[in-house]
Design a protein around this nucleic acid. Structure first.
Lengths: 340, 340
DNA sequence: ATTGGCACTCACAGGTCAGGAGTGCCAGAC
DNA sequence: GTCTGGCACTCCTGACCTGTGAGTGCCAAT
């Protein structure tokens, strides 16, 4: 009975604090929550919760604030991801409906997520390495200039321009295009480089060298780590909503958001699966983000997590709401990617 | 003699205020600038400058702050765009050297500009409408699914996937590809739609309908207004450097920065030519940006301004420095685009 | 036209003080 | 045992006051 109520008190503290952004005291707590006990009892429970490191007081004789550990317990004991309201679902549907291409889907998702959660939204582009080749195109631009275009199953387009030592016959190019496609279409990008390594041998010795050069660029394109490093970010203005001590941590936060590499590492660490993951305050392995929490999940067609999306906000954010929104948007994008 | 010195006083006030972010008084002014007159004289000049609306005092008996009008006069009387130091030039060169593609050039430029000026950097992608067609590719993805790829002279790649009512013969596709290219390569995008309008007639009547459909998508792609709406932004963390009243205007500023459409309109208004333009405070036709100034210029290969880049910061920014940096980066990108 | 001098104005920092929300603890009730 | 009412205590907050100093405007003298 006792431990159960303490959990209830913690939940109430978290909810009130998220709402008001002010330390919550025992008296106002019993006034606003039907706990069925007096403030004195709550005070005792609070003392115990503080003992356990779940809440803290900014100064003696002030109300309590949840610690990172407190938020963690709160999140772990959340009953279930609450479903969105009908209106919200409709908003998502209409918002993502008219998307033209992958870029558009990503950007719309970012805006949507930022609007739904009032936090900073982060959406990673589907990683190349885990998607498959849909088509390869080889085009002569001018005599010695060649364009290589790679289209992936997720609709992403990579291009490379390369300079050749001497002009190459159009027939050779056409042949190469055909061979590249038969060898790689449908294959995972990770395997594609391997698949084409033998191709130069199939050409006339006089062409082998230049073909090898083209193949090398192709292999480099599919393996390019840099191509994985793409994210879209939106809703940064939402960081400014507060007039409190969180403002102090905004600058490092904005800086971290511009370090896409760091962000991607973070997102990559967080989830491969399609369940919603939460990182709270110091749990985030990055000192610029100690005052922030991240709610993220993987997404991708057919439940395979090709990439990660999520929101970032102050530790005192609305976790249930954010988790629901992140989850819903991820499902919608996944469906769109599966259809496309 | 008199008017000349007043201008000098204004310049000194602007410089000091930009440096210290504090209202500057007559005494400290004569201490730090070799004006050759006493503080009392400066006081008289200040009174005159205030009369003209060039400076203002936050409260009675405080120092003076330049008004937007004051900054304007200051900028207009700037001798010349001061050249960058050798170190800065080298930094630009090495920073932009290894760029792989257009995307990379843009992103590097944004970072560079943000670093050089310590402001928010904005770089618009070269507009499609003013660039020319380099290559058109038509690819069958599956039986009834077609991919259209458009490559522009600036290296930008646009793609469209379209669903056909029935499979189309490969020969027709090849024929169409050839005709599209001969008709449009080298042409301005704005003219391309016009150029291909007659193509369907050249095909067998049984194919004309489907060809017309493809042409329609192509025409829509080259004319797409939306494609012009692309900017890269960086250095938003630089907005947080100040611990003063400017902080109040940061939220609307961040919001405006996310409204790419608005930004683009702004940049578009600012310059078609390759000279550096400055908009100060209320001169910016957007109430969210009244506390901000913009320094921008056009850029593009061979002096033709294909797009705009610039920086955005508080009205009390280092105009000479920002103008120099913006100018230098614009020239460098232009050169890179001309080479590519 | 410029300057030194002088009275005046305010923002700002520091100090004091009352009010109030919140706490911890204890003794008594269920 | 658990809960509750009561009470003394803490200490943040906001209001109010005050002295200080930077800065101004104006005037008479050079």
């Amino acid at each position: 009975m006792l431990d159960d109520r303490r959990l209830e008190v913690l939940r109430a503290i978290v909810e009130d604090y998220v709402l008001t952004h002010e330390p919550v005291g025992s008296k106002s707590l019993v006034e606003r929550h039907p706990l069925g006990v007096s403030s004195a009892t709550v005070r005792n429970d609070m003392a115990a919760l503080e003992e356990d490191g779940l809440i803290a007081q900014p100064h003696t004789s002030a109300g309590r604030i949840p610690t990172d550990k407190g938020y963690r317990l709160f999140v772990d004991n959340l009953p279930d991801i609450k479903p969105l309201t009908g209106a919200e679902k409709r908003a998502i549907a209409t918002f993502l409906q008219g998307a033209l291409d992958l870029d558009d889907v990503i950007h719309r998702s970012v805006r949507l997520l930022a609007q739904l959660t009032h936090q900073v939204a982060i959406v990673q582009y589907p990683t190349l390495s885990r998607s498959t080749v849909r088509h390869v195109e080889v085009v002569t631009l001018s005599g010695t200039r060649l364009l290589l275009v790679l289209i992936t199953s997720t609709g992403r387009v990579e291009q490379r321009v390369l300079e050749l030592p001497k002009p190459v016959d159009d027939e050779v190019i056409a042949d190469l295009r055909a061979r590249l496609n038969t060898a790689t279409v449908g294959q995972a990008l990770a395997d594609a480089a391997e698949r084409v390594s033998r191709l130069p041998e199939m050409f006339h010795p006089s062409d082998a060298a230049v073909v090898a050069q083209i193949i090398a660029v192709f292999a480099e394109a599919v393996a390019d780590e840099r191509s994985d490093e793409k994210v879209a970010i939106g809703g940064t203005a939402n960081l400014m909503r507060f007039g409190d001590e969180f403002d102090r941590s905004i600058k490092p936060l904005l800086e971290a958001l511009e370090e896409h590499v760091v962000l991607l590492k973070l997102l990559g660490d967080m989830t491969g699966s399609s369940t919603v993951t939460v990182r709270i305050g110091h749990e985030v392995p990055h000192e610029q983000l100690v005052a922030a929490s991240i709610v993220a999940t993987g997404y991708g067609p057919g439940g395979r997590a090709l990439a990660t999306l999520g929101v970032l906000g102050p530790t005192r954010m609305d976790y249930p709401g954010s988790m629901a929104a992140v989850n819903a948007v991820a499902r919608y994008i996944s469906k769109i990617l599966a259809d496309a």
